[in-house]
Design a binder for these strands. Sequence first.
DNA 1: AGCACA
Length: 468
Amino acid sequence: MASVSSQQQFRYTQPPSKVLHLRNLPWECTEEELIELGKPFGNVVNTKCNVGSNRNQAFIEFGDLNQAIAMISYYASSSEPAQVRGKTVYLQYSNRQEIVHNKTAADVAGNVLLVTIEGEDARLVSIDVLHLVFSAFGFVHKITTFEKTAGFQALVQFSDAETATSAKDALDGRSIPRYLLPENVGPCNLKITYSGHSDLTVKFQSHRSRDYTNPYLPVAQSAIEGGGQVMVGLDGKKLETESNVLLASIENMQYAVTLDVLHMVFSAFGPIQKIAMFDKNGGLQALIQYPDTQTAVVAKEALEGHCIYDGGFCKLHLSYSRHTDLSIKVNNDRSRDYTIPLIPVVNTQPSILGQPVPMMGPPDQQYNVSQYTPISDPAMIPQSQAGWGAAPPAVAQSMPLQMHNNIYMPPGNVPPQMPPGNVPPQMPPGNVPPQMPPGNMPPGMQFSNPGMLQPAATMPAYGSDRIQ
DNA sequence: AGCACA
């Protein structure tokens, strides 16, 4: 039985109160706008905006009950609804008799911001991208990232509260510009409050935390720290050095995992240079090479423990390889160098469990360049064949988008139902969607240009998602 | 679009 009392608070007929509750406000709404809204009806003695988890609610308190009644009555019969910034706001008597201002840490301006990154792909936002975004407002001293129930969060430390405030005002509620994110990463909204902290403790430089005032801090193998509290200890197993090459081992391999499947899965995080597959200890392993460590870190974080296929099949275990550059002698069904589409294909008949695996693209067409016109100078390679510098064909763009919704789900929830023996759509080798690997920005984009990110008005990339 | 989140 549903309780009746819980519904009562939402009944249309609230008993009158000097305090009005407003909802459906634009997130930008200020106290001044609330005062403007209430002033015609009386003396607004108190307001509170940005209330609720969506920060789209507010309260207005009048000096006199009759003034509150006047405002409610007016809009109850008006043909024009109450509006803030052109947005209709709904008002009713509050169930409280006065506004209580509970100043919390989040309301007190400080030099450290608590940033919540919202979005399906929030955890794929690298610390470098955050650094870039916040550096537009001043020198960023430290960043720590961590996951809480609120989601993926970061603490960003500036020199002073003024700088932090300018960043907060400009970025709160806005989205990280698309061009800073890998193409297949969905929108990431920023929600920003002040943190109670004033100085973060960063013991190691890691993918989770950085101290930009002390670049010579030891680089962590696996240290994770957040908000001055050490959140994860070192466990011997995780003492591994990051690398641009991942070692993947595949557990419970009920279904065929082909080179192209691996390419599809791992290229969701950035361009792949090389893949080599081999058998070890009766299981399948693969080395996957990215151009940079950052991308590999992101891919490892996102994919570790996840299954390629639904139902717990083909579970990935990832570690960093000691290799940095794989030596691929020949392109075949177990190894491929995507940077040089000219290595001849050894056309071995791919066969798994005795069943021939259908190839989606005819191999001799894919590699005919190498067969007929061996070119040694990469500059002579036609654009369309030249790896990820090339313009992406439609296939390459749409495919990872499909994948990426699946990848980040909890294990077992992941993927397209693929019956054994079926090979998913393949990306033609050498045609990788153009992505900016995290942390691999062109030098000109680093820090230096505050104007680039700062004024919201000239930065349509921010906020454009939110305004409707 | 529905009551203050520390």
